[in-house]
Design a binder for these strands. Sequence first.
DNA 1: AAGATATATCGACTTTTCCCGATATGCCAA
DNA 2: TTGGCATATCGGGAAAAGTCGATATATCTT
Lengths: 99, 99
Amino acid sequence: MDQVEIFKALSNKSRLQILNWLKEPETNFPDQAVHGYANGVCVGQIQMKAGLTQSTVSEYLSTLQRAGLVKSNRVGQWTYYQRNEEGFALLNQIIQSEI
Amino acid sequence: MDQVEIFKALSNKSRLQILNWLKEPETNFPDQAVHGYANGVCVGQIQMKAGLTQSTVSEYLSTLQRAGLVKSNRVGQWTYYQRNEEGFALLNQIIQSEI
DNA sequence: AAGATATATCGACTTTTCCCGATATGCCAA
DNA sequence: TTGGCATATCGGGAAAAGTCGATATATCTT
């Protein structure tokens, strides 16, 4: 069952916060402006805001990506993350019809 | 944060199944017919269908209730559980506006 | 009052999650 | 090509969740 993975990814306060922050990157990650927001927000920005170690944030973003809730773009040495709205559409569908 | 509790409750295959079964009690718990379905389905029925021990199922139902996803009615020596649609409405709201 | 039945709680053990520091990898600049 | 960033992965210790069997509690029947 794949639904469980999604809900596990959502079962953590920091990960929920990250998803929420990524709804409004310009507001929540002003320092990202240098890089632009087209590809998402890079890990370092998220790490600073989350107040967790780099490894933890990287791990959390992988978890969210495996669950389909974010997607990433590697550009040079940076990895940009942004919400994957398709994943949220799937989540809605799961809740409406499979639970 | 309370959202985390809800998602943790949903992070388990058996608990997801129980919630789904409770959508159509008449179909999924035919042996409950003797007691009627007005108050929900009693723990024993859910246990049999889930194939877990009595203590585990009782614990799972408590977890779901703490998360607001089911509600219970004690009648005599039986505890009947049913879905709490208010909880699902809250879940939808959380997903729409807080994540 | 005694036994039977349904559910809840307790104690224990195993597995998973949380989060870290250390190290590896990939990319860029000089 | 050497060093410096940004990110990913690895290894680990502490805390939480998964699940069980045993026991407690509440209720019903006789």
